[in-house]
Amino acid sequence: MGLVRLQFQREWRLLARARSEALNPLVFLIMTVTLFALALDGQAQALSRYAAGIFWVLVLLSSLLSLDGMFRRDFEDGSLEQILLLAEVPFLPIIGKMLAQWAATGLPVVLMSPLLGTVLQLPPEALGPLAGALLVGTPTVSMLGAVGAALVVGVRRGGALLGLLVLPLYIPVLIFGTAAVNGLAAGTGGVAQIYWLAAMSVLAVTLAPFAVHAALKISLENG
């Protein structure tokens, strides 16, 4: 477990030193939420009905920004291949890296969701479910996204390709996430969807490290 903590601390220190770069995805989320609110604010009633769906889509899109840079800096300076070379169990530093990525993007989104939810005219009773659904759903987003990021790390301008590879895999998270928020807010039952989100996150956390490791070994081969 030491390797997970070691890598987590290293990533966190790197993020702290490049604070603006780490905050870009969050700023993007805030801006796009504001754009939607401006575009639709006239029909406040209509906006609140679709706010959960809009918010989830924007979270998925903003995650692509942070994922693209997740391995790129280490790939270019050569420390990424050292992880595969030196670590006794390479999955542990990879898990450390993915947890750090989630903590830097997923968690802040959960914490800011009440504020951004109200900007999108979400009714107050929907803010709790939104935060809960995001907390349970964003690990899958980070883990599946990490697989895509590892596949495109060696590709120039891999950002657009990353979206194409990963967004189809996000569809279940989007469907159940939106349904959970709307269901719980309206009291018509969204708990089943929360369980689905949790189950997907557990599956992603257990399987993604293997896929990321395989993808990194492949990307490093033509390094």
Binding site: G2, L3, L6, R10, R13, L14, R17, A18, R73, D74, E76, D77, G78, S79, E81, Q82, I83, L86, A87, P93
Partner: peptide, 21 residues
């Protein structure tokens, strides 16, 4: 390439390497 993270100090880089292995 030297495998050193630009934003980390020399000590932090080396301590990470020792821990990694």
């Amino acid at each position: 390439n030297d495998g050193l993270s630009a934003l980390l100090t020399v000590e932090e880089n080396l301590r990470w390497y020792a821990g990694l292995s």
